[in-house]
Simulated scan of single mutants.
Amino acid sequence: MNADEIEQALDDLFDQALVYHGYTDYMRDYEMVVQGSADPAAGQGYRRYLFRHCPKVSVTSSVGTDVWARSLDESLVHQQTPQSNDVYAWGMRRQALYPGAGRAETSRETKRWSSRLGVSFYEVRLEGNGHELHLLFSDLTVTDLEAGYTPFVVPEAQS
Rank of each mutant, 00 (worst) to 15 (best):
L135W: 02
A38N: 01
T81S: 06
S115N: 15
E132V: 13
G45D: 12
S138V: 03
G118A: 11
L72N: 06
T106V: 12
Y49A: 04
G130M: 14
E123V: 01
D25S: 10
H78Y: 09
T24K: 07
D12R: 11
A41D: 13
S114F: 04
A69W: 06
T60K: 13
Q158F: 09
Q79R: 14
L135E: 04
A96T: 09
A9D: 12
G22P: 05
Y46D: 03
N85G: 10
L133A: 05
D73F: 13
R93K: 10
H131C: 07
N129T: 14
S138K: 02
R103M: 13
L140C: 09
I6H: 02
V153N: 01
S107K: 08
K111F: 11
Y26A: 11
M32P: 00
R103K: 13
E127F: 10
R125I: 15
Q80V: 09
G45H: 06
L72C: 04
T150Q: 14
S62R: 15
P55H: 08
T143K: 11
C54I: 07
Y149I: 02
Y49Q: 06
D25Q: 06
G91V: 11
Y20W: 14
T143L: 09
D4I: 09
F14P: 00
A69G: 07
F14G: 03
Y149R: 06
G43P: 06
M32Y: 00
D11L: 15
G128N: 13
K56I: 10
E5W: 09
D39P: 02
F14C: 06
G100Y: 08
M92R: 14
T141G: 07
A96C: 12
R47C: 01
E5V: 06
Q158C: 08
L136Q: 00
R94I: 00
N129G: 11
S62W: 09
A41P: 00
D139A: 15
H21M: 14
D29Q: 04
P151S: 02
E105P: 01
L140G: 07
T81R: 15
E5T: 11
Y20I: 04
N85K: 08
P82S: 10
